[in-house]
């Protein structure tokens, strides 16, 4: 179990580095899928198989397919035009250092903690999660439903090809 956790974690980190440094959109998306699956394996290793399954189904399955669809629809190629200056250290050094400092601060804070919990890998079944979810967390489920509805409406409005805003602009130009 421990070995699975550390290996999967390493894979997740490497795949994520591949995501943020990649230049080809489709490669980056695939890296991200690898990263997500690695995190799902981490979940399995931690003893949360329900979460891992959802990670694969919803994240890697649904959301990333959405990304792939969009990449295909826009016919994106390896486009480094916009990111060309990024290759210069002057541009990536500052943010990277910042992120490193943040990481350092987080790790330092975690090291200071004295919780000393060890994860044994006991199974938390889908049943217990579902009981919690539809028991005390019912309101959160309802709110999530509303959030998804709102996202649905927004996406279908914003993503329209003949956007009303555009039409209005065009009307104004005539």
């Amino acid at each position: 179990m421990e070995l699975a956790f550390y290996l999967s974690g390493l894979v997740a980190v490497l795949a994520t580095i591949g995501v943020i440094t990649g230049t080809s959109p489709i490669h980056a998306v695939v890296y991200l899928i690898v990263s997500l699956i690695a995190v799902a394996l981490v979940f399995f290793a931690l003893g949360a198989p329900f979460a891992g399954a959802l990670e694969i189904i919803v994240y890697a399955g649904a959301i990333m397919v959405l990304f792939v669809f969009v990449v295909m629809m826009l016919n994106l190629r390896s486009d480094t035009r916009g990111d060309q200056p990024w290759l210069h250290p002057r541009h990536w050094l500052g943010p990277s250092l910042l992120a490193l400092v943040l990481l350092g601060a987080l790790v330092a804070l975690l090291a200071q903690g004295s919780v000393d919990r060890v994860i044994e890998g006991e199974l938390l079944t889908a049943r217990s999660v579902a009981l919690t979810l539809f028991g005390p967390w019912l309101m959160v489920v309802e709110l999530s439903a509303i959030l998804l509805l709102a996202a649905l409406v927004t996406a279908s409005h914003v993503g329209r090809r003949n956007n009303p805003v555009q039409n209005r602009n065009r009307g104004g130009n005539q």
Partner: peptide
């Protein structure tokens, strides 16, 4: 985003470095 992260980092760094902060 960078400026926001800078602020968060400063706060976290202060928490991490402060004696007994965490």
């Amino acid at each position: 985003a960078t400026v926001m992260v800078l602020g968060v980092t400063v706060i976290l760094a202060v928490l991490a470095l402060a004696p007994g902060g965490a």
